[in-house]
Nucleic acid binder design. Structure first.
Length: 800
RNA sequence: GCGGGCGUGGUGGAAUGGCAGACACGCUGGUCUUAGGAGCCAGUAUCUUUCGAUGUAAGGGUUCAAGUCCCUUCGCCCGCACCA
């Protein structure tokens, strides 16, 4: 009998589909398990071999949990709003809705061909008005709570996408999506106050089971720092407030720097004698893209304000004020006190402009370089702080200045508010109208969903507006509040909107009264295990935690965190070890792999390829090993005999059950597969396999290779369907062989091996070892100093 | 610069401080075959004829015992980056 994977896989996929084998039940009395993988963006390229790495890994977990009796929710859907679809639509004059429909159909059939046990009855699509109705609804709640606001501000603008970007979407001064240069532009934008949740987003990381690197990256991104705001008097009469994490170094502050965008510059224009120079610098800074601004980071530039200076509050010295683009308007107060002795940037600047450098913490040579590694140092040249440790000095100076009313402790975050608008067509319309009398007015919830209107062209407007700005009929509306003339918002939401809550919708995907019922959310949430890419750590993962916390606050969801556990997979690289890309010509097409090897082999190979968390290069040669393994499993059918588990296979089988079960829980599918291969090797060598043995083997292998195992299960006449069988259990006592090989070492080096009963005492084991010829001769004439016995492993004799 | 991670055969990778290289790929030899880019069997870290010795980026340390823990150096990868 030949292993006809194509026929077998099609057969079982149809049976599963027909029986609804993987539909999560609404029986809320059963123990539940919610496994989640990031839903894909259905691109025109079709599925990438990277997608199944994540999907198969959790499919294995989901299938195992079902066999263990859990009510498992393992859903799939489409994150389908986004630029590539829109660009394709523009180029080919096809409506994005149709493009999306086609892409989704292709993706779905590709996923189904892999035998992934998704509950397709809960499929969702972010571009479906019945779905984005609730995305809009959440936006309205944010608006009502003051967490969505429109603001004129300096934004990241991608010239080639003709669209604003969130800070998280700017990578090295370039657009995350297209790689185009990002420049600054002042625009009125919808923003979400994620910063209001900064502290909670940070704190609650302690209560979730995320892999460390995810937590660390989120913590760094949130970027909490503690320090103080200190007021400096100026000769202009205005108070200039700075933020510093090192108030202890105040005596070393020899000048100040304010950002080129600081609003005092306008205010002081009458007092500043070199205003021309200042203006020129401001213009230069504004013109620079993020990329240029960070590229020249090494060389400090700036202009000294001629006519205004500041007073250092601790010693009343008059110190100069500069403008420089190394001070950012968007962090702290947009102004700093510069302490060149103990800050590298300030030191560089001071050297360039020949400013005094004062040592205030002992330990370095501040004329040579900034002494920054000084958290444990002792204060000098610092008046009332002299002789104190840095730590004590911080407290004392804040107390001292607070009493005078010119300083207060302050916590700052690097996290910025979320730019929540895109000048694009293919996104959720923002359900707000602008009334001349009433200002921004939310649409009544009864008018949701606010559907995307039909347009002639999806091209962005030349003035940087969305394609919707050209639809005057749609834009003109009446104010829901006063009935007067009003205009609709023409920007749409960013792609991250729909994915910020999609896991909630899976719990109750067809509900038209609420985003999901209370009962469904109570039962299913939180997601028990969420796997996804590291690239989403500071985007989707952070955004969705923010929305979830907000929904928790307004009583919509029962948990304050959406995901109990988060893991992340490594990339699958091309055979050349490079990232797969069309231009490199190293792309592996999953359809071809399924066609040439079958879905079970594909699944097995992707899981066997290496450490799940690490990037791994594809190998067309290695995949054959997985195919061979499955063929050998298939061929066991020829040598199967009636019978129980034979005594000599009792321990290996129990050990394998234990190992596979534990490895699946740790996402170590590679070693789980290896242990099954080992077991197969052992059983095969005996020339036959008993029914009870193969029964266990099939159940263990089923989550990994569901089609072939189901087929053999049926061929051998085992009861029912394998997907409804029970996960095998093991007996700890039976995992151990009755006799065991012990290594005998002298001074840590292996000299001999011997076999003893497993329950041998330490003394007996050591004595047995000492009686071995090799050990006897090795210790002859030496003093035995110590003897060790490690249970079931080794004896070590220390002799000199 | 800061933060995190990694470094093991020809390759992908295994190893709760306890026999380094499981499992697989590749390769070599054999076998079966009209044929083999199929299957099966054996071998495969290095040096050494053997005994044995050496070996987990390099160097040092802790330990009866180190790929694993600590220190130093080098190399690579990822994230953040003028965040005061």
């Amino acid at each position: 009998m030949k292993y006809d994977y194509a026929a077998i896989e099609k057969k079982w996929q149809d049976i599963w589909e027909e029986k609804g084998a993987f539909h999560a039940s609404n029986d809320y009395t059963k123990p539940k398990f919610y496994a989640l993988v990031e839903f894909p963006y259905p691109s025109g390229q079709g599925l990438h071999v990277g997608h199944p790495r994540s999907y198969t890994a959790l499919d294995i977990v989901a299938r195992k949990k079902r066999l263990q009796g859990y009510n498992v929710l393992y859903p799939m859907g489409w994150d389908a709003f986004g630029l590539p679809t829109e660009n394709f639509a523009i180029k080919n004059h096809i409506h994005p809705e149709i493009v999306t429909k086609n892409n989704v159909a292709r993706f779905k059939s590709q996923l189904q061909s892999l035998g992934l046990s998704f509950d397709w009855s809960r499929e969702i699509n972010t571009t479906d008005p019945n779905y984005y109705k609730w995305t809009q609804w959440i936006f309205l709640q944010l608006f009502k709570k003051g967490l969505a606001y429109k603001k004129e501000m300096n934004v990241n603008w991608c010239n080639s996408c003709k669209c604003v970007l969130a800070n998280e979407e700017v990578v090295n001064g370039q657009c995350e999506r297209c790689g185009g240069d990002v420049i600054h532009k002042t625009k009125s934008q919808w923003m979400l106050k994620i910063t209001e949740y900064a502290q909670r987003l940070l704190d609650d990381l302690d209560n979730v089971d995320y892999i460390d690197r995810v937590k660390i990256q989120q913590r760094n991104w949130i970027g909490r720092s503690t320090g103080a705001e200190v007021d400096f008097a100026t000769t202009a009469g205005d108070i200039l407030t700075v933020y510093t994490t090192r108030p202890d170094t105040l005596y070393g502050a020899t000048y100040m720097v304010i950002s080129p965008e600081h609003n005092y510059l306008d205010k002081w224009s009458g007092l500043i004698k070199n205003m021309d120079e200042v203006k020129a610098y401001q213009e230069m800074a504004a013109r620079k893209s993020d990329f240029e601004r960070t590229e020249v980071a090494k060389d400090k530039t700036g202009v000294r304000l001629d006519g205004v200076s500041a007073i250092n509050p601790v010693n009343n010295k008059e110190i100069p004020i500069f403008i420089s683009d190394y001070v950012l308007m968007s962090y702290g107060t947009g102004a700093i006190m510069a302490v060149p002795g103990h800050d590298t940037r300030d030191w560089d600047f001071a050297k360039k402009f020949n400013l005094p450098i004062i040592e205030v913490v002992k330990g370095g040579n501040v004329q040579e370089s900034a002494f920054t590694d000084c958290e444990t140092g002792i204060m000098v040249n610092s008046g009332i702080l002299d002789g104190l440790t840095v730590e004590d000095a911080k407290k004392k100076i804040i107390d001292y200045l607070s009493e005078k009313g010119i300083a207060k402790p302050k916590v700052n975050f690097k996290l910025r508010d979320w730019v929540f608008a895109r000048q694009r067509y293919w996104g959720e319309p923002i359900p707000i109208v602008h009334c001349e009398k009433c200002g921004f007015v939310p649409l009544p919830e009864s008018e949701l969903p606010l559907k995307l209107p039909e347009v002639e062209s999806y091209e962005p407007a030349d003035d940087g507006g969305s394609p919707l700005t050209k639809l005057t009929d749609w834009i003109q509306t009446t104010c829901p509040k006063c009935g007067g003339k009003a205009q609709r918002e023409t920007d749409t939401m960013p792609q991250w909107a729909g994915s910020s809550w999609y896991f909630l919708r899976y719990c109750d995907p067809h509900n038209d009264k609420e985003l999901a019922s209370k009962e469904a959310l109570e039962y299913w949430m939180p997601v028990d295990w969420y796997n996804g890419g590291m690239e989403h750590t500071t985007l989707h993962l952070l955004y969705s935690r923010f929305w979830h916390k907000f929904l928790y606050d307004i009583g919509v969801v029962p948990t304050c965190e959406p995901y109990a556990k988060r893991t992340s997979h490594g990339m699958i690289l091309g055979e050349d070890g490079q990232k797969m890309s069309k231009s490199r010509g190293n792309v592996i097409n999953p359809d071809e792999i399924v066609r040439d090897y079958g879905a079970d082999t594909m699944r097995l190979y992707e899981m066997f390829i290496g450490d799940f968390e690490k990037a791994a290069p594809w190998s067309s040669a290695s995949i054959k090993g997985c195919k061979r393994f499955l063929e050998r499993i298939w061929n066991l059918q020829d040598i199967v005999v009636d019978g129980n588990i034979r005594p000599e296979f009792e321990a290996p089988i129990h050990r394998t059950i234990k190992k596979v079960g534990e490895d699946i829980e740790k996402l170590k599918h590679n070693t789980a597969i290896a242990s099954m291969m080992s077991l197969l090797n052992e059983i095969e060598a005996s020339g036959s396999v008993t029914k009870d043995e193969i029964n266990v083997l099939l159940r263990l292998l089923n989550p990994f290779a569901p089609h072939i195992t189901e087929e053999i299960w049926q061929n051998l006449g085992f009861d029912g369907m394998l997907f409804e069988a029970e996960w095998p259990s093991y007996d700890e006592n039976k995992c151990i062989d009755s006799t065991i090989e012990i290594v005998a070492q002298i001074n840590g080096k292996v000299r001999a091996k011997f076999t003893v009963p497993v329950d041998i005492s330490a003394d007996d084991a050591i004595q047995t070892a000492l009686n071995l010829d090799k050990i006897k001769s090795a210790v002859e004439g030496k003093n035995i100093i110590k003897k060790f016995y490690v249970k079931g492993k080794l004896v070590n004799i220390v002799a000199k």
